[in-house]
């Protein structure tokens, strides 16, 4: 279990995932069992970058003694992504040298690093844009027996207490919690920014530690992928007869 680190220095761990670019063509190979990576641009998962990482950087700008570590679970091809994250900010990075299996496997690797790291805060993005699991934060928190605040839209620190606004079903909730805590971040927590030249230059020399994975058995595996059936194509209704759209939606599509 984590305890608040005794040095009075805020330590933040930001979880970074590598995902295909938002506009990447989604296709599969090997009898629909593997994502087709040919020609795919890889990016930092947008929620990890825009919200989790940037909020950590903002906290460090307020209190420069803050230490930010980044962690990713991935093979060597994840290094350009973690370097890009370091160019935005963060002091050092850890790459757990493993293919990412399921959420439980990834969360277990992150928890294995975090349990000896004396982190006060662990930030994740709200979900990855490829697997859309939204599970890593909750799993890491449970593995470390920490409170977890999901889907934060605002995050502020006062000493060792965090005030967090989060989205709940049909509304929002303001929470107060003592550190350490795990928080998943979404829009509102921070404003997206782009790396500057100084950041890019300094990222080259920031430490990037590679560690071997803990022995963990994944609990699930992907059997196959499918693409949704292609749309039949849009049926256009003339602009001078919008009533026809209502008739079609009602009688043909039976949408209401």
């Amino acid at each position: 279990m984590l305890t608040l680190n005794s040095f009075g220095i805020m330590k933040i761990l930001v979880c970074i995932s590598k995902t295909p670019d938002t506009t990447a063509k989604i296709a599969f190979t090997q009898n629909n069992t593997k994502f087709a990576t040919d020609g795919v641009q890889w990016i930092i998962n947008p929620y990890d970058e825009w919200y989790a990482l940037v909020r950590a950087i903002e906290l460090k700008e307020k209190d420069p003694s803050t230490v930010i570590h980044l962690i990713t679970v991935g093979a060597a091809d994840a290094e350009p992504i973690i370097r890009k994250a370091l160019a935005l900010g963060g002091d050092e990075a850890i790459r757990v040298n493993a293919d990412s299996h399921d959420s439980f496997y990834i969360a277990s690797q992150i928890a294995a690093i975090a349990k000896d790291g004396n982190y006060d805060l662990i930030f994740t993005g709200k979900e990855t844009i490829d697997y859309n699991g939204s599970s890593i934060g909750g799993m890491v928190a449970e593995l470390l027996d920490l409170p977890y605040i999901s889907l934060a839209t605002k995050f502020d620190l006062g000493g060792t207490t965090a005030t967090v606004v989060r989205e709940i079903e049909g509304g929002e909730e303001t929470d107060s919690v003592s550190l350490p805590v795990v928080v998943s971040c979404q829009k509102g927590v921070a404003e997206q920014r782009i790396p500057n030249m100084k950041g890019i230059m300094s990222a080259r020399t920031k430490p990037l530690k590679v560690v071997e994975p803990a022995a963990v058995e994944p609990l699930t595996n992907v059997v196959s992928f499918e693409l949704p059936p292609a749309k039949a194509g849009v049926k256009l209704v003339p602009a001078d007869n919008p009533e026809e759209l209502i008739r079609l939606l009602h009688e043909e599509a039976k949408a209401f």
Binding site: D102, S103, F104, A107, N132, G133, S134, S135, I136, G137, G138, M139, A141, E142, L143, Y148, S150, L151, E167, I168, E169, L219, T220
Partner: peptide, 24 residues
Amino acid sequence: SNNLSGKAVAPRVAVRLKAGLVSG
């Protein structure tokens, strides 16, 4: 349900029970 409540709770339950989780 994979609504905001499910997203908050199900991953923690999965860890406690060592249960595989499919969300969504």
